[in-house]
Design a protein around this nucleic acid. Structure first.
Length: 208
DNA sequence: TTCCTGACCC
DNA sequence: GGGTCGGGAA
């Protein structure tokens, strides 16, 4: 996986920062949004509002203009509100604990873990739709719940199998990229085929 | 039409 | 547990 990442990984601006504020912005913009479209919004937003303080003082209409091309406009209000709380309650510093992070408006389980991992180098696993799809397929995991995202049992099974011996920042990006580029939702073309229980199951069904 | 590095509401 | 936000690409 590490080798695959070194050869094939995608290069996004937020992969080059360890500033928790910039990470937070990226994760905010990325939710339920195609990665390709986020890059421009991310850069212009950081260019206009380089710190939490400036975002807290930003005009809401300006924020909406920046976010409207990628949808989910309510994120503008949440981001501004979060910046305000960061400024008021934490002296402008993004919190470094899970408990404090999820108190912020618009920050849930995934974004909190992402900030802790990418911004504070903690060995966290932000579990999103990509990670779930990849691990459910490869390890033949299943979930009782209609929404695997909310399945804490499944999350634990994924973390158990998340045994990378290198930087978790790299590992998470690698998993994300691999799921996004190779283990895709529709017609995946995967080099790990024979190792993957999902592929083997499909072959089996095909033969019958 | 479905889906996208989710979070929030009921 | 399920609905909803949302523009854009496949």
């Amino acid at each position: 996986m590490k080798l695959w990442f070194e050869r094939n990984h995608r290069d996004y601006p937020w992969c080059h920062t360890k500033d928790p504020y910039e990470i937070l912005i990226a994760e905010f913009l990325l939710q339920q949004t195609h990665v390709r479209k986020v890059e421009e919004a991310y850069l212009s937003l950081l260019s206009d509002f380089p710190t939490a303080k400036e975002l807290a003082e930003a005009s809401e209409s300006k924020l909406i203009d920046l976010i409207s091309p990628i949808g989910l406009i309510y994120r503008a209000k949440r981001m501004k509100s979060t910046a305000n709380q960061v400024f008021l309650n934490y002296g402008g510093k993004i919190p470094d604990t899970f408990e404090d992070l999820i108190k912020l408006p618009g920050v849930g389980n995934y974004i909190a873990n992402a900030v802790l991992c990418y911004g504070y180098y903690q060995n966290r696993v932000p579990i999103d739709t990509n990670v779930i799809r990849l691990f459910m397929r490869y390890f033949n995991l299943s979930s009782e719940k209609p929404r695997p995202r909310t399945d804490e049992v499944l999350a634990e099974q994924i973390r158990d199998r998340y045994t990378f011996d290198f930087d978790y920042r790299i590992a998470n990006w690698a998993v994300l990229d691999f799921a996004g580029l190779v283990c895709t939702m529709i017609k995946p073309q995967c080099p790990l085929n024979e190792h993957c229980s999902y592929y083997n199951k499909k072959i089996l069904i095909h033969k019958e």
